[in-house]
């Protein structure tokens, strides 16, 4: 009990102190001398796309995005390592007329929305992240409603899809280096096509990784069950 009180007191003091410090810091912050939006606007013609955020994500700071998809891949690998083996197939649920009809109608629509978001990314809000998460959402919806979705396991096909985005990105990065350019500096004439290609690959990988993170969550078998096989 005393430990609990002490914990709350320390937490209270710490968070109030951090809050006050941040609050004050916002007040005294100096005005930046470099205007990033102006720099971005200046460089836009050479970026290959006409939407500024896509230009930043996939051209000006593309190594951020490269590292991001690497982080997603690492998460997917851990998820695969920790999943229950062997997985029993989900029992076929009895048909729910309304749910099934709804899901079958809405899934193609969600795929269409994802394709639109991917395509729209070069000219207006949208892009690989949004498209990938909509696709992943569609897959989660299918899985939750008991309809068959390919599960992400250690079959070769799903491994390939999981690393697809990172591989395409790395190939492009290697290509720019081999062409004598700095890392990930695309030639302006090709930039648009390269960005769309990378984004398409990223969309697929992001969708599959996010879905696999949902799908491979351990089912919390009792500790004594034979699901322990992969232990030690």
């Amino acid at each position: 009990m005393r430990r609990r009180v002490a914990r709350h007191a320390v937490a209270g003091v710490a968070s109030v102190a951090v809050g006050i410090a941040l609050w004050q810091a916002i007040g005294v912050r100096s005005i930046p001398t470099v205007s990033l939006p102006a720099l971005v606007r200046e460089a836009m013609p050479a970026s290959g796309v006409s939407h500024d955020i896509t230009a930043v994500l996939l051209n000006f700071r593309s190594y951020d995005t490269l590292l991001e998809i690497a982080v997603l891949l690492a998460a997917a690998v851990v998820a695969l390592a920790l999943r229950d083996t062997p997985r029993e197939r989900m029992p076929a649920s009895q048909p729910y007329l309304i749910l099934d009809t709804f899901v079958w109608r809405i899934t193609p629509l969600l795929v269409l929305v994802a394709a639109y978001l991917l395509w729209a990314g070069s000219t207006r809000p949208g892009g690989a992240f949004q498209a990938g998460s909509v696709l992943a959402g569609a897959a989660v919806l299918l899985r939750l409603s008991g309809l068959a979705v390919l599960s992400v396991d250690d079959r070769l096909a799903s491994r390939v899809v999981v690393v697809f985005g990172l591989s395409v990105f790395l190939l492009v990065a290697a290509g720019t280096l081999l062409a004598g350019q700095p890392l990930l500096a695309y030639p302006p004439a090709w930039a648009g096509a390269l960005i769309l290609m990378i984004e398409a690959a990223l969309t697929l990988s992001i969708a599959v990784v996010l879905f696999s993170l949902f799908d491979n969550a351990p089912q919390s078998r009792p500790a004594a069950a034979p699901a322990q096989r992969g232990e030690a």
Binding site: L36, P37, V40, D52, I53, A55, V56, L57, R61, D64, T65, E68, V71, L72, A75, A79, F129, S133, I206, V209, L210, L213, F214, A217
Partner: peptide
């Protein structure tokens, strides 16, 4: 656009970390 792009990356990393 620069902080917005950073935060977009952050949101996707945050959801994968959460998962």
């Amino acid at each position: 656009p620069v902080p917005q792009a950073l935060v977009l990356t952050g949101i996707v990393v945050a959801v994968s970390a959460t998962a």
